[in-house]
Design a protein around this nucleic acid. Structure first.
Lengths: 235, 235
DNA sequence: TTGGTATTATGGTCTTACCATTAATGACGC
DNA sequence: GCGTCATTAATGGTAAGACCATAATACCAA
């Protein structure tokens, strides 16, 4: 019957206004916000309130703060989910297996979509990465293997043209790197895996290049299964 | 060779300390934090810095703020991804289709996992919901249909026992409700859909009750496809 | 028991002052 | 003319203190 009353805080209104301006395009990526003192004057609130709002916007990855320079709208929002997800992870609400499971679902979907939406240019780029990965892997160059492996998965996600999936995958990737030591390292250069992994990567590439979504999904699924298996063994 | 220097702000250290205490279990869900003034004294910083840190913790959903009462660790972190995701959405970085696509992947996975991990008790609860939904749907009670429909999908996600998926699904659900007016409404009571939807929900329920993951995935996939189709028609 | 009232603790806001960092400016030496 | 370096101004970071707004609590009165 009745709905709860909620007093609107000043800092919340400030957050709202800035968010709206960004959504409306009045503030674009890379733009410099007015200085805190100017903002305070224009909004007719104290600098304290402005700063609290800016802190909130900063933590969700909307703005970047440079002391002595100014506050800027972020160029990229690729990691705005990182903080909250990290928190969830740290609070033991999330089992490592859960996150790996999520990764599988997302990556299988990106592979599927990539096979549908990939451009010729991207196919060429994927080819380069797969070849590089094979080279580094055979040379037991773990550091570069890991690097190229990441780039490959990232490029596939890009080719899917689904920004949301790309974003989530980014965050998962960072989370695994942060909370699971050496998550990608060992598996790539372990002797018994090397050939299999090279083949799997090539399969994924071929399926996408052929624009065969189902095959790509299967290839990626097999690939992640191996990773999960290896990962679980190390726990 | 060199890594960039980063001066650590006071408020960042405050955030860190509180996060650590929560991660360590020194602060548990529902706990009341020391008052801002006490915190400032204990950490030997100004109340300004404490408040900026608290604002950040609030925005990522870690704490709840009650004026005149105190700051509390949140009981539930179900919606800590909401703010950042909303931001992404508002900035037009995300197409509505992308979010619906993500929903499909997630829901299919929760259905699959639910079929593997569901308990007898949960099966009974699902049964009740499916029956209720059928009833409301036949009675053209849109409001209650939507309500029970949500509960049903939520319960399935719970049965998957993957907290991360549950969480993301929650957020997607809110996002669709917020940004897509009447996202769930019309479809549930539209004449030509009614029977199909009732059958689809029963299929999903049966598959999970039989603990048949593949069948559950198929049933959920078909269901979401219909929803997506209906949704895209309305754009 | 119910409703009002005063008290007190707590978060919310504002002001002012000063510190720390950065970018821009301009003087200086070559 | 060109690079180097100190100066300066602008901006974010921190602190302290005052006062407002709200909510929990205890107490009182009907």
């Amino acid at each position: 019957m009745f709905s709860p009353i909620k007093s609107t805080k000043v800092y919340e209104q400030v957050i709202e206004q800035i968010q709206t301006m960004i959504a409306n395009g009045e503030l674009k990526r890379g733009d410099k916000l007015p200085s805190e003192r100017q903002l305070a004057e224009q909004l007719q609130v104290s600098r304290t309130s402005v700063r609290e709002a800016l802190r909130a916007l900063q933590i969700i990855g909307l703005i970047e703060v440079k002391q002595g320079d100014g506050n800027f709208i972020k160029e990229s929002f690729d990691f705005c989910l990182l903080q909250p997800l990290s928190v969830m992870f740290m609070l033991h609400q999330t089992k490592p297996a859960d996150i790996v499971g999520l990764r599988k679902v997302i990556e299988v979907e990106t592979a599927t979509l990539a096979a549908q939406n990939v451009t010729d240019e991207e196919i060429a780029e994927l080819k380069v990465l797969v070849d590089q990965l094979k080279e580094f892997s055979l040379a037991d160059d773990e550091k570069n293997s890991v690097k190229v492996d990441k780039e490959l998965h990232y490029k596939i996600a890009q080719a899917s043209k689904n920004f949301l999936l790309l974003n989530i995958l980014n965050v998962i990737s960072v989370l695994m790197d942060t909370f699971i030591e050496d998550a990608r390292g060992m598996i790539l250069t372990k002797y018994e895996n090397k050939d299999i992994l090279i083949m799997q990567h090539e399969n994924i590439y071929k399926s996408i290049a052929e624009k065969n979504p189902k095959k790509a999904a299967k290839a990626m699924s097999d690939h992640i299964d191996l990773i999960i298996k290896d990962y679980l063994n190390r726990l």
